[in-house]
Design a protein around this nucleic acid. Structure first.
Lengths: 170, 170
DNA sequence: AGTTTAAGTCAGCGTTGTTGACATTCCAAG
DNA sequence: CTTGGAATGTCAACAACGCTGACTTAAACT
């Protein structure tokens, strides 16, 4: 509407002036991109009896082996009942191992089995390939900006969780 | 793994060399950010008898008034049965109006009613506020990069749909 | 006239959220 | 030491929203 890139106008303020139209483009970009983001793993999972929730569980168990059910459901942002259904099938199918805590026997510590690692690898490979290709197309500076905006978009507590995972990173 | 940020190494290639760890951070950022992105509308919708699917329908009908059912379900990427369930409630509740096409009477053209516009406004206001705040925190250059990566992450046909919407923009 | 297309409906199923009820374990206060 | 509460995890039932498949109606195309 009206401008596009018309105005360097006012001081530094100009760069912070955002039309509803610009924001809506961002919203739609987010919607379409997330679909692409999940498309490849979803395709793979649908051939098995699994869904996106299984993917997420496997991802974060791989990310933080030995994590407790409670940790996991905080990260995933679902109820323990919802997570439990997913874990039950993964454990039943021998992809995840659940070990009773040694210091606190109420806790269950979660690990991927060999089969679990195999599935995790298949799924991440697909998702990383898409990510790599997007990063490559957009260029390294764009990637910086991409991450910055995403971090600003998270809820505060999730930003903390994400931050902790970055430290632990690699 | 194995490295981290070891290498500026090779020529310009260095900027395109992406470790699995870097990619995984992007994947997790996308996951947490999308949760934040949908959190505010979800909260509002859960107080009514609606869900995310209703939001999406209302959004795109507002975006392209008079769109047909077929257009809509292509954009949304769901089956007509799934969309129909949502549209039926929206029409029944008087948020959406369905008019028989004048040139092709098989088609139904969809419009928001006054009530529909009200809901749409409430939902977008919440989502735009989050978006605006994220953009503001990240800065204008980051926003450029953000959009570039998201576009590269979409499936080709959705990139086309997204592009068309940008042209039509406002 | 016969085929294709747009839209809608009904029935049924799977994944993944939810709440409610319950068992087990730990810990701290009496 | 016992008892009551908090934390952890499990089982059951329900709702939202995807999906497939089968079918109808109406209009358009050929």
């Amino acid at each position: 509407m009206s401008d596009g890139r018309s105005g360097q106008s006012f001081s530094g303020e100009s760069l912070l002036f955002l039309t509803d139209e610009q924001l809506r483009q961002g919203i739609e970009a987010m919607f379409f991109a997330y679909r692409g983001f999940t498309a490849d793993p979803d395709r793979i999972l649908s051939e098995m009896a699994y869904g996106r929730a299984h993917h997420r569980a496997v991802h974060f168990i791989n990310r933080a082996p030995g994590t407790t059910v409670n940790n996991l459901l905080t990260i995933l942002g679902v109820t323990k009942q919802s997570l439990n259904r997913v874990l039950r099938t993964l454990i039943g199918d021998g992809l995840v191992e659940s070990r009773v805590g040694t210091v606190d026997k109420r806790e269950r510590h979660l690990f991927l089995t060999e089969h679990g690692h195999a599935l995790e690898a298949t799924l991440s490979d697909a998702q990383r390939a898409r990510m790599r290709s997007a990063y490559k197309d957009a260029g390294p500076e764009a990637v910086q900006g991409f991450k910055r905006v995403l971090e600003a978009m998270m809820d505060a507590d999730m930003r903390r969780a994400y931050g902790k995972m970055r430290e632990t990173g690699s």
